[in-house]
Amino acid sequence: MTGIHRDTTIGYVKLTIKSLERSLAFYQHVIGFQVVSQTDHTAELSADGKQVLLVLEENPSAVVLPERTVTGLYHFAILLPDRKELGIALARLIENGIALGQGDHAVSEALYLSDPDGNGIEIYADRPRSTWRRDSEGNYVMTTAPVDVEGLLEEAGAERKSRLPEGTVIGHIHLHVTDLQEAKAFYTDVLGFDIVGNYAGMSALFISAGGYHHHIGLNIWAGKNAPPKPANASGLDYYTIVLPDPEELSRVTKALTDAGYPIEEKQEGIFVKDPVSGAHIAFTL
Protein backbone atom coordinates (compact mmCIF):
# COMPACT_ATOMS: atom_id res chain seq x y z
CA MET A 1 0.00 0.00 0.00
CA THR A 2 1.22 3.48 -0.89
CA GLY A 3 1.11 6.11 1.84
CA ILE A 4 -0.78 9.31 1.28
CA HIS A 5 1.26 12.19 -0.20
CA ARG A 6 3.21 14.09 2.45
CA ASP A 7 1.82 17.44 1.22
CA THR A 8 -1.79 16.42 1.93
CA THR A 9 -3.70 18.89 4.11
CA ILE A 10 -7.18 19.61 5.43
CA GLY A 11 -9.06 22.16 3.31
CA TYR A 12 -12.40 23.52 4.47
CA VAL A 13 -15.23 22.29 6.68
CA LYS A 14 -18.96 22.42 5.86
CA LEU A 15 -21.43 22.64 8.74
CA THR A 16 -25.19 22.51 9.01
CA ILE A 17 -26.44 25.23 11.36
CA LYS A 18 -29.89 26.35 12.52
CA SER A 19 -29.68 30.11 11.86
CA LEU A 20 -27.34 31.67 9.33
CA GLU A 21 -27.79 35.12 10.88
CA ARG A 22 -26.86 33.85 14.34
CA SER A 23 -23.89 31.84 13.09
CA LEU A 24 -22.52 34.67 10.95
CA ALA A 25 -22.62 37.01 13.94
CA PHE A 26 -20.59 34.48 15.92
CA TYR A 27 -18.11 33.46 13.24
CA GLN A 28 -17.45 37.02 12.08
CA HIS A 29 -17.37 38.98 15.33
CA VAL A 30 -16.15 36.35 17.79
CA ILE A 31 -13.94 34.07 15.68
CA GLY A 32 -12.89 36.69 13.10
CA PHE A 33 -13.81 35.15 9.75
CA GLN A 34 -14.72 37.20 6.68
CA VAL A 35 -17.64 36.38 4.38
CA VAL A 36 -16.45 35.53 0.87
CA SER A 37 -19.88 34.78 -0.58
CA GLN A 38 -23.41 34.47 0.77
CA THR A 39 -26.88 33.40 -0.36
CA ASP A 40 -30.13 33.29 1.60
CA HIS A 41 -29.16 30.01 3.27
CA THR A 42 -25.40 29.53 2.84
CA ALA A 43 -22.18 31.42 3.43
CA GLU A 44 -18.51 30.82 2.64
CA LEU A 45 -16.01 32.19 5.15
CA SER A 46 -12.28 32.80 5.04
CA ALA A 47 -9.46 34.41 6.99
CA ASP A 48 -7.82 36.21 4.06
CA GLY A 49 -10.87 37.03 1.93
CA LYS A 50 -9.91 34.38 -0.65
CA GLN A 51 -9.32 30.85 0.64
CA VAL A 52 -12.56 29.33 1.94
CA LEU A 53 -12.09 27.62 5.32
CA LEU A 54 -15.68 27.23 6.50
CA VAL A 55 -19.01 26.77 4.71
CA LEU A 56 -22.27 27.22 6.61
CA GLU A 57 -25.61 25.92 5.41
CA GLU A 58 -28.79 26.88 7.23
CA ASN A 59 -31.46 24.38 8.15
CA PRO A 60 -34.01 26.23 10.32
CA SER A 61 -35.42 22.93 11.63
CA ALA A 62 -31.99 21.54 12.60
CA VAL A 63 -31.86 19.84 16.00
CA VAL A 64 -28.94 20.56 18.33
CA LEU A 65 -27.90 17.27 19.96
CA PRO A 66 -26.32 16.82 23.39
CA GLU A 67 -22.52 16.49 23.34
CA ARG A 68 -20.94 13.09 22.79
CA THR A 69 -24.13 11.28 21.79
CA VAL A 70 -23.46 10.56 18.10
CA THR A 71 -20.57 10.08 15.71
CA GLY A 72 -19.34 13.00 13.64
CA LEU A 73 -17.65 16.22 14.61
CA TYR A 74 -15.79 16.55 17.90
CA HIS A 75 -14.10 19.74 16.74
CA PHE A 76 -12.54 21.40 13.73
CA ALA A 77 -9.29 23.19 14.46
CA ILE A 78 -8.30 26.66 13.29
CA LEU A 79 -4.50 26.89 13.10
CA LEU A 80 -3.06 30.38 13.59
CA PRO A 81 0.38 31.37 12.26
CA ASP A 82 2.07 32.00 15.62
CA ARG A 83 1.72 32.33 19.37
CA LYS A 84 1.13 36.08 19.29
CA GLU A 85 -1.91 35.60 17.05
CA LEU A 86 -3.22 32.99 19.50
CA GLY A 87 -2.88 35.57 22.26
CA ILE A 88 -4.80 38.14 20.20
CA ALA A 89 -7.53 35.57 19.51
CA LEU A 90 -7.69 34.71 23.21
CA ALA A 91 -8.15 38.38 24.13
CA ARG A 92 -10.99 38.70 21.58
CA LEU A 93 -12.70 35.60 22.97
CA ILE A 94 -12.42 36.87 26.54
CA GLU A 95 -13.76 40.29 25.56
CA ASN A 96 -16.77 38.55 23.97
CA GLY A 97 -17.44 36.58 27.16
CA ILE A 98 -16.91 33.18 25.52
CA ALA A 99 -16.61 30.11 27.76
CA LEU A 100 -13.28 28.47 27.00
CA GLY A 101 -11.45 25.24 27.58
CA GLN A 102 -7.72 25.05 26.99
CA GLY A 103 -4.79 22.66 26.81
CA ASP A 104 -1.03 22.82 26.38
CA HIS A 105 -0.38 19.74 24.26
CA ALA A 106 3.44 20.13 24.09
CA VAL A 107 3.30 20.23 20.26
CA SER A 108 0.78 23.09 20.40
CA GLU A 109 -1.24 25.40 22.61
CA ALA A 110 -5.00 25.22 22.16
CA LEU A 111 -8.24 26.96 23.10
CA TYR A 112 -11.58 25.14 22.94
CA LEU A 113 -15.09 26.50 22.50
CA SER A 114 -18.41 25.75 20.81
CA ASP A 115 -20.44 27.66 18.25
CA PRO A 116 -24.15 28.49 18.81
CA ASP A 117 -25.13 25.06 17.45
CA GLY A 118 -22.79 23.15 19.71
CA ASN A 119 -20.18 22.49 17.01
CA GLY A 120 -16.78 22.12 18.65
CA ILE A 121 -13.96 24.49 17.67
CA GLU A 122 -10.29 24.46 18.54
CA ILE A 123 -8.14 27.54 17.95
CA TYR A 124 -4.45 26.78 18.27
CA ALA A 125 -0.86 27.61 17.44
CA ASP A 126 1.86 25.05 16.88
CA ARG A 127 5.17 25.02 18.67
CA PRO A 128 8.20 24.69 16.36
CA ARG A 129 8.32 21.24 14.81
CA SER A 130 11.91 20.89 16.02
CA THR A 131 10.56 20.70 19.59
CA TRP A 132 8.07 17.87 18.94
CA ARG A 133 9.09 14.55 20.48
CA ARG A 134 8.08 10.95 19.79
CA ASP A 135 8.06 8.07 22.24
CA SER A 136 9.71 4.67 21.69
CA GLU A 137 6.68 3.49 19.67
CA GLY A 138 6.74 6.51 17.35
CA ASN A 139 3.78 8.32 18.88
CA TYR A 140 4.06 12.07 19.34
CA VAL A 141 4.32 12.94 23.01
CA MET A 142 1.26 15.09 23.67
CA THR A 143 0.14 16.42 27.02
CA THR A 144 -2.92 18.19 28.37
CA ALA A 145 -1.32 20.69 30.72
CA PRO A 146 -2.77 24.12 31.54
CA VAL A 147 -2.07 26.80 28.93
CA ASP A 148 0.00 29.77 30.05
CA VAL A 149 -2.90 32.16 29.58
CA GLU A 150 -1.08 35.13 31.08
CA GLY A 151 1.87 34.48 28.80
CA LEU A 152 -0.40 34.40 25.75
CA LEU A 153 -2.01 37.69 26.70
CA GLU A 154 1.43 39.22 27.33
CA GLU A 155 2.45 38.03 23.86
CA ALA A 156 -0.54 39.86 22.40
CA GLY A 157 0.15 43.01 24.39
CA ALA A 158 -2.27 45.80 23.58
CA GLU A 159 -2.79 44.63 19.99
CA ARG A 160 -6.36 43.74 19.11
CA LYS A 161 -7.78 42.49 15.81
CA SER A 162 -11.33 41.87 14.68
CA ARG A 163 -10.24 39.40 12.00
CA LEU A 164 -8.23 36.23 11.79
CA PRO A 165 -4.77 36.81 10.29
CA GLU A 166 -3.62 35.80 6.83
CA GLY A 167 -1.98 32.40 6.98
CA THR A 168 -4.80 30.94 9.07
CA VAL A 169 -5.82 27.44 7.92
CA ILE A 170 -7.85 24.48 9.12
CA GLY A 171 -5.05 22.56 10.79
CA HIS A 172 -6.92 19.40 11.64
CA ILE A 173 -10.30 17.85 12.29
CA HIS A 174 -11.25 15.60 15.20
CA LEU A 175 -14.07 13.08 14.85
CA HIS A 176 -16.20 10.82 17.03
CA VAL A 177 -16.20 7.38 15.38
CA THR A 178 -17.85 4.01 15.97
CA ASP A 179 -14.69 1.89 16.26
CA LEU A 180 -10.97 2.70 16.24
CA GLN A 181 -9.91 -0.49 14.45
CA GLU A 182 -12.38 0.21 11.67
CA ALA A 183 -11.17 3.82 11.58
CA LYS A 184 -7.58 2.60 11.24
CA ALA A 185 -8.59 0.25 8.43
CA PHE A 186 -10.20 3.08 6.46
CA TYR A 187 -7.85 5.99 7.14
CA THR A 188 -4.50 4.21 7.21
CA ASP A 189 -4.94 0.93 5.32
CA VAL A 190 -7.04 2.37 2.49
CA LEU A 191 -6.22 6.09 2.34
CA GLY A 192 -2.62 5.73 3.51
CA PHE A 193 -2.43 8.20 6.41
CA ASP A 194 0.36 7.59 8.93
CA ILE A 195 -0.38 6.79 12.56
CA VAL A 196 1.33 9.42 14.70
CA GLY A 197 -0.54 8.83 17.95
CA ASN A 198 -1.95 5.47 18.95
CA TYR A 199 -3.30 6.56 22.31
CA ALA A 200 -5.12 3.42 23.41
CA GLY A 201 -5.40 4.65 26.99
CA MET A 202 -7.27 7.71 25.71
CA SER A 203 -9.39 5.68 23.26
CA ALA A 204 -8.02 7.88 20.47
CA LEU A 205 -6.00 7.52 17.28
CA PHE A 206 -4.18 10.44 15.60
CA ILE A 207 -3.14 10.25 11.96
CA SER A 208 -1.40 12.61 9.56
CA ALA A 209 0.55 13.16 6.37
CA GLY A 210 4.14 14.36 6.16
CA GLY A 211 4.93 13.97 9.87
CA TYR A 212 2.43 16.53 11.16
CA HIS A 213 1.25 15.93 14.74
CA HIS A 214 -2.22 15.15 13.42
CA HIS A 215 -4.42 16.11 10.51
CA ILE A 216 -7.24 13.87 11.76
CA GLY A 217 -8.06 12.84 15.30
CA LEU A 218 -10.35 9.85 15.85
CA ASN A 219 -11.95 8.88 19.15
CA ILE A 220 -14.74 6.74 20.64
CA TRP A 221 -15.64 9.22 23.38
CA ALA A 222 -19.29 9.21 22.29
CA GLY A 223 -19.22 5.46 22.97
CA LYS A 224 -18.13 2.53 20.86
CA ASN A 225 -20.65 1.94 18.07
CA ALA A 226 -22.31 5.29 18.81
CA PRO A 227 -25.16 6.07 16.38
CA PRO A 228 -24.62 8.43 13.44
CA LYS A 229 -25.75 12.04 13.49
CA PRO A 230 -29.38 12.20 12.28
CA ALA A 231 -29.96 13.95 8.97
CA ASN A 232 -32.00 16.68 10.70
CA ALA A 233 -29.28 17.60 13.23
CA SER A 234 -26.76 20.41 13.13
CA GLY A 235 -23.14 19.38 12.75
CA LEU A 236 -20.58 18.29 10.19
CA ASP A 237 -21.78 17.76 6.63
CA TYR A 238 -18.39 17.12 5.05
CA TYR A 239 -14.77 18.19 5.19
CA THR A 240 -12.19 18.37 2.44
CA ILE A 241 -8.82 16.70 2.15
CA VAL A 242 -6.59 18.64 -0.25
CA LEU A 243 -4.24 16.53 -2.37
CA PRO A 244 -1.23 18.10 -4.12
CA ASP A 245 -1.67 16.80 -7.68
CA PRO A 246 -4.00 14.88 -10.03
CA GLU A 247 -1.86 11.75 -9.74
CA GLU A 248 -2.48 11.57 -6.00
CA LEU A 249 -6.19 12.19 -6.51
CA SER A 250 -6.28 9.29 -8.98
CA ARG A 251 -4.39 7.05 -6.56
CA VAL A 252 -6.77 7.81 -3.68
CA THR A 253 -9.81 7.36 -5.93
CA LYS A 254 -8.54 3.96 -7.09
CA ALA A 255 -7.73 2.89 -3.53
CA LEU A 256 -11.26 3.71 -2.43
CA THR A 257 -12.97 1.95 -5.34
CA ASP A 258 -10.67 -1.08 -5.06
CA ALA A 259 -11.65 -1.34 -1.39
CA GLY A 260 -15.34 -1.25 -2.31
CA TYR A 261 -16.21 2.27 -1.14
CA PRO A 262 -18.69 4.02 -3.45
CA ILE A 263 -17.50 7.42 -4.59
CA GLU A 264 -19.37 10.31 -6.16
CA GLU A 265 -17.85 12.96 -8.41
CA LYS A 266 -19.18 16.44 -7.71
CA GLN A 267 -18.05 19.96 -8.49
CA GLU A 268 -16.43 20.22 -5.05
CA GLY A 269 -14.41 17.03 -5.46
CA ILE A 270 -14.49 13.25 -5.14
CA PHE A 271 -16.88 12.38 -2.29
CA VAL A 272 -16.84 9.29 -0.11
CA LYS A 273 -18.71 8.56 3.09
CA ASP A 274 -16.46 7.98 6.05
CA PRO A 275 -17.75 4.62 7.34
CA VAL A 276 -16.86 5.32 10.98
CA SER A 277 -17.90 8.95 11.58
CA GLY A 278 -20.85 9.15 9.19
CA ALA A 279 -19.55 12.37 7.67
CA HIS A 280 -18.51 12.73 4.06
CA ILE A 281 -15.03 13.55 2.81
CA ALA A 282 -14.40 15.52 -0.37
CA PHE A 283 -10.97 14.96 -1.93
CA THR A 284 -9.90 18.04 -3.87
CA LEU A 285 -6.85 19.63 -5.46
Rank of each mutant, 00 (worst) to 15 (best):
Tyr187His: 12
Ala204Asn: 05
Gly201Arg: 05
His172Val: 02
Ile195Cys: 08
Tyr199Leu: 12
Ala158Ile: 13
Leu180Met: 09
Asp245Leu: 10
Asp237Ala: 13
Ser203Ile: 10
Glu248Asn: 11
Tyr187Leu: 09
Arg251Ala: 13
Glu122Trp: 02
Pro116Gly: 04
Pro227Val: 09
Gly223Ala: 09
Ile195Asn: 05
Arg251Trp: 04
His215Ser: 11
Ser162Thr: 15
Leu205Ile: 01
Tyr239Pro: 04
Gly197Lys: 11
Ile216His: 01
Ser250Leu: 15
Arg134Trp: 01
Trp221Ile: 00
Tyr124Asn: 07
Gly217Phe: 06
Tyr112Thr: 04
Leu205Tyr: 04
His213Thr: 08
Arg251Cys: 11
Ala185Ser: 14
Leu236Pro: 02
Asn219Cys: 09
Asn139Ile: 01
Gly138Met: 03
Val147Ala: 05
Gly167Phe: 08
Ile241Val: 15
Glu154Cys: 13
Gly235Met: 08
Gly217Thr: 01
Val141Asp: 11
Lys184Ala: 14
Val196Ala: 07
Thr168Asp: 06
Ile195His: 06
Lys184Ser: 12
Leu164Met: 09
Gly223Thr: 04
Ile123Tyr: 02
Arg160Val: 11
Arg163Cys: 12
Ile220Cys: 12
Ser208Ala: 15
His176Ala: 04
Glu248Gly: 00
Ile220Arg: 00
Val190Phe: 06
Leu243Asn: 03
Gly201Tyr: 03
Leu249Pro: 03
Val177Gly: 06
Ala204Glu: 00
Leu218Cys: 09
Ile216Gly: 00
Met142Gln: 11
Ile170Trp: 03
Ile123Cys: 05
Ala226Trp: 07
Thr144His: 14
Glu248Val: 08
Asp194Met: 08
Val196Ile: 12
Lys161Ile: 02
Ser234Asn: 02
Arg134Ala: 07
Tyr238Met: 04
Gly201Ala: 04
Trp221Asp: 01
Arg127Ala: 10
Ala145Trp: 14
Val177Thr: 11
Ala209Gly: 02
Pro244Phe: 03
Tyr112Gly: 06
Ile170Gln: 01
His176Val: 06
Asp237Leu: 12
Asn219Ser: 10
Ala185Gln: 13
Tyr212Asp: 09
Gly210Phe: 01
Asn198Gly: 14
Lys229Val: 11
Gly157Glu: 05
Tyr112Cys: 01
Leu243Ser: 03
Ser234Trp: 04
Ala204His: 06
Asp179Ile: 10
His172Arg: 05
Ile173Ala: 04
Ile121His: 05
Leu152Thr: 00
Leu218Pro: 05
Asp194Phe: 09
Leu175Ile: 10
Glu155Cys: 12
Ile123Val: 15
Val242Arg: 13
